[in-house]
């Protein structure tokens, strides 16, 4: 596994990469630090393994074969895993990375008998999507992928928000009106938020990583709802949303 022990030089975009706003590497470094540390349900080494498996998935022959199949359940095989994660976790990471639009509630719940749980899955998802988006930025910019950070010691906190409840999604979520004092920052103090923001609130740090990255890659939460706001970007808001819409459409994403 390609890892780097020091974060000091992580995401150094100053060497021949003109024009990258300073808030982007700052957000990437913050998220790398969060990924490397213990979470609520997984240790740092597991979380780094999620990141590694997400990278493995892009060249996984079984994933490619399954992606091409009419039904993802119609074929069986082995992922090109390089970690010691439980099989269900490896499969979840690879599916999220390569074939997300065909994930189902039945599939997710079937993993609960094989080492995952709702909260363990949400934490895995939060790490995977963070790494995917940072890697995607590097690919789009023609930059090499950042080496994964070294796992930090520590035990998972085992924290589950008491206010998490069934909101109709596959996993419980915390509604803005229910957030505890310790999660007052989660939705920026807003009384409403989009379902996609609260989707991972069963593991609050997953939401924090999401908003940290979105604020740098897209728009800060306060600007998202204002259709006239472009957050000071060099693109107009319609240009931003044209890209967003095209990526979502090509990803076969209804939301």
């Amino acid at each position: 596994m390609n890892v780097v022990g020091s974060e000091a030089m992580a995401f150094d975009y100053t060497n021949g990469t003109a024009g990258i706003r300073g808030d982007i590497p700052a957000a990437h470094r913050d998220v790398w630090r969060m990924v490397a540390g213990p979470g609520n349900w997984w240790g740092g080494a597991d979380r780094i393994a999620f990141a590694q498996e997400s990278r493995n998935a892009r060249s996984c022959e079984f994933c490619a074969e399954r992606k091409a199949a009419l039904s993802p359940l119609s074929i069986t095989g082995q992922h090109n895993a390089s970690t010691n994660l439980p099989d269900a976790a490896v499969d979840a990471v690879h599916r999220i990375t390569t074939d997300p639009s065909r994930l189902t509630r039945d599939w997710l719940e079937s993993t609960y008998d094989h080492g995952l749980s709702d909260a363990r899955y949400v934490e895995l998802l939060g790490v995977v999507v963070a790494v995917i988006s940072i890697d995607a930025f590097h690919r789009a910019m023609g930059l090499p992928l950042e080496p994964l950070p070294a796992a930090q010691p520590g035990s998972p906190a085992g924290y589950r928000p008491a206010a998490a409840k069934d909101s109709g999604a596959w996993v419980p979520t915390v509604a803005p009106e229910d957030v505890a004092e310790s999660e007052a920052d989660l939705y920026g103090g807003m009384s409403r938020t989009g379902n996609v923001i609260s989707a991972m609130s069963l593991v609050p740090d997953s939401v924090r990583m999401l908003t940290r990255l979105s604020g740098a890659h897209y728009l800060k939460v306060k600007n998202v709802a204002n259709p006239a706001a472009n957050g000071g970007r060099a693109l107009s808001r319609p240009q931003i949303e044209l890209i967003a819409g095209r990526v979502s459409s090509l990803s076969d994403c209804f939301y």
Binding site: I96, I132, I134, A136, I243, V247, S248
Partner: peptide, 11 residues
Amino acid sequence: ANFQRMVRIAD
């Protein structure tokens, strides 16, 4: 990059 994350959260 952002929307490669968001679509996977939704899905």
